[in-house]
């Protein structure tokens, strides 16, 4: 069964996303909403990894896939500065969270076919929270974009 590859990807992606939220939090301390919320969302990602554990124990995880690390290396190993830098950092988080989101969706599909109620409960909670993370990132970016792209010094 190849579900283990996707569980491995998901676990990795959540861990990477948590680290990246933390990085953006510490790099943008002058934007208090971003700073505090990114810390909160980092915790949320770690909780997702924890909730995933029983599922991983059941089906195993294959860590051979390295997609999230590539994103990490390119986007969020450090944070940028200034209004456009904030926008781009949030956009990188958005990409990473999208990866998490769609991976949850695929795991949900597998869980449905497996008729694994416990897995589906985990997906319902974690996938739902990931969707909110995406909506927040988009809300914040949409607010910041015009100022950053048109008038920021």
């Amino acid at each position: 069964m190849n579900l283990s590859i996707y569980l491995g990807m998901l676990h990795q992606a959540e861990t990477t996303l948590a680290e990246s939220f933390r990085q953006v939090a510490s790099g943008h301390g002058a934007e208090p909403d971003v700073h505090f919320l990114c810390h909160t969302l980092a915790q949320q990602c770690e909780e997702h990894s924890r909730l995933l554990l029983p599922v991983v124990q059941r089906y195993g995880e294959d860590l051979s896939d390295s997609e999230p690390e590539r994103l990490h290396a390119e986007g969020l190993s450090t944070t940028r500065q200034g209004p456009v830098g904030l926008l781009r950092d949030l956009q990188d988080l958005y990409l990473l969270a999208s990866l998490v989101d769609v991976t949850w969706t695929m795991v949900k599909q597998a869980g449905s076919a497996l008729r694994d109620r416990e897995l589906l409960d985990v997906v319902a909670r974690c996938g739902g929270e990931t969707a909110v993370q995406l909506r927040w990132l988009q809300t914040r970016m949409k607010q910041a974009a015009p100022q950053a792209l048109l008038v920021a010094r």
């Binding site: 909110v132 993370q133 809300t139």
Partner: peptide, 10 residues
């Protein structure tokens, strides 16, 4: 909005 994050519902 989502009350934890402020994300808009849409």
């Amino acid at each position: 909005h989502d009350l934890l994050t402020g994300a808009t519902v849409g």
